[in-house]
């Protein structure tokens, strides 16, 4: 099974809009079924463009947090001294845990002379599966303020992969998170190909460079798509050059096209809302090129 992950480095470059259009292409212009996953659990927006229905949700239990038994606690403060995350606040009245700051290491348990502390698993979000006109979508919701350690991203991917494998799907299309940290590493691991959607801004380029370095660091082949490329043609060229210097091809230059905004307001992929728009044509072409690249990559890895 093939796996494409769409990333960006910088947020707001149009990653999700591009993914939605590719999902539509995967469903209507490809032999074999594709499944969809939204790995940007911290700002999960793909469902908003794909008319997600019949959502099945279940709680996701992440790491543990320390819990104080107020009756047993003497308020001695040894736990506060042991905690490196400033997650315990103690006074003579007892100790309190700041559940958001707590990383669940259990160092406090070792020091507590009264046995007043325990580690308790915590629900940090929900895993979701929905039906869309473009195939099943696996997504999630991270409760605000929780640690996005990549665990929930991994859980979403695991579920999507399991369904894709059980139903002999051709591939899995993943909308990834911004940045370069844990959630990105979790989204990238095991992918056949990463498509980096960027914009021709100075910050877009800077963040792309870091994202490319991360993707390459984990050995996943990368390709570039420049959104709103005509907004700053010199900037777009600089991005192509940056890619070329690292042996990474730019597959598409998408125009700055208000159809994208119209589709977003309508809650549909742009290729569905405005099929004749130049950007929709460009996205359909991008999907065809991606398929060809994917065939090359998968052949390479077998040799």
């Amino acid at each position: 099974m093939k796996e494409i992950v769409v990333l960006s480095g910088k947020g707001g470059t149009g990653k999700t809009s591009v993914t939605a259009a590719l999902a539509h292409q995967a469903a209507h212009a490809t032999a074999g079924r594709w499944l969809l996953a939204d790995a940007d659990v911290d700002a999960a927006n793909l469902a908003l463009l794909l008319d997600a229905q019949a959502t099945v949700a279940e709680p996701f239990v992440g790491g543990a947090v320390a819990v104080v038994d107020a009756d047993a606690c003497s308020g001695c403060g040894l736990c506060e001294a042991a905690c490196r995350y400033e997650a315990l606040i103690c006074d003579a009245g007892g100790c309190q845990v700041d559940a958001i700051a707590c990383e669940g290491c259990g160092a406090c348990l070792d020091r507590c002379p009264s046995g007043a502390l325990a580690l308790v698993p915590q629900t940090v979000g929900t895993c979701r599966r929905s039906e869309t006109p473009y195939g099943a979508l696996h997504h999630a919701h991270l409760d605000p303020g929780q640690e996005n350690s990549g665990k929930l991203v991994t859980a979403v991917k695991r579920r999507a992969r399991a369904q894709a494998e059980a139903e002999h799907c051709a591939g899995l299309l993943i909308d990834g998170p911004p940045g370069i940290g844990c959630p990105v590493i979790a989204a990238v691991s095991g992918a056949s190909l990463a498509l980096l959607v960027t914009e021709p801004t100075v910050s877009g380029r800077e963040d792309l460079a870091r994202a490319l370095a991360t993707v390459t660091h984990f050995g996943v082949p990368a390709l570039i798509c420049i959104n709103k490329a005509d907004l700053y043609p010199d900037g777009a060229q600089a991005i192509e050059d940056l890619g070329a210097a690292r042996g990474i091809a730019t597959l598409a230059r998408l125009p700055f096209d208000l159809s994208m905004t119209e589709a977003l307001a309508a809650g549909r992929p742009v290729t569905v809302q405005c099929p004749e728009a130049p950007i929709s044509q460009a996205l359909a072409e991008l999907w065809r090129t991606l398929q060809a690249r994917l065939a090359e990559v998968t052949t390479d890895s077998k040799t």
Binding site: G150, T154, K157, R158, P183, A186, S189, G190, F218
Partner: peptide, 8 residues
Amino acid sequence: SHDGHHGG
């Protein structure tokens, strides 16, 4: 034989 599943 694979590059690991981060956070997983």
